[in-house]
């Protein structure tokens, strides 16, 4: 799957909901289904700054195939993480850097993109892109 396809799928899924409660409920459920991280992953080195809840993000793989694992102690944020992983994990660093996360606006969660929001979607996106850049430099 490409980043574009993944984004389109998400937009289609969210198109089924007509109010914010359903969208949030779906996010919360997605967050719940996110695989838990081991204690060894939930260390300060993996903690993202700029989030009000705790967000751990682990990067694996290389520039050809970047793999991200992440989770949070807050449910809505975990849901956002699930979406990000679906879009970005398993893609090449170049594809990540070449794409825009337009799905966030399209599914009505653009609130969460504002840099003044402390929930960290911005911080996560920035970290994913930074990791992609690092991987490209190392390649």
């Amino acid at each position: 799957m490409s980043i574009e396809t993944a984004q389109r799928e998400i937009v289609e899924e969210f198109g089924l909901f007509d109010d914010w409660m359903d969208r949030y409920q779906y996010l919360i459920d997605l967050g719940r289904k996110l695989p838990e991280l081991d204690a060894a992953d939930m260390v300060e080195d993996h903690l993202l700054a700029g989030c009000q809840s705790q967000v751990w993000l682990i990067t694996e793989g290389d520039a050809d195939r970047m793999v991200f694992r992440a989770n949070s102690d807050a449910a809505i944020v975990s849901g956002l993480i699930a979406l990000l992983l679906k879009v970005y994990s398993g893609r090449s660093a170049q594809e990540i850097l070449d794409s825009e996360p337009h799905f966030v606006v399209e599914i009505g969660l653009s609130d969460h993109l504002s840099p003044t929001r402390a929930n960290g979607l911005n911080a996560m996106l920035a970290e994913i892109r930074r990791q992609a850049q690092l991987a490209l430099q190392a390649a």
């Binding site: 409660m21 449910a75 944020v77």
Partner: peptide
């Protein structure tokens, strides 16, 4: 079972401004 951040985000949609963190 509920993170304060989630509570704050949801009650905000009901018009209630609270602080979390």
């Amino acid at each position: 079972g509920a993170h304060p951040n989630d509570i704050g985000t949801i009650v905000d949609h009901y018009g209630v401004a609270i602080r979390t963190g």
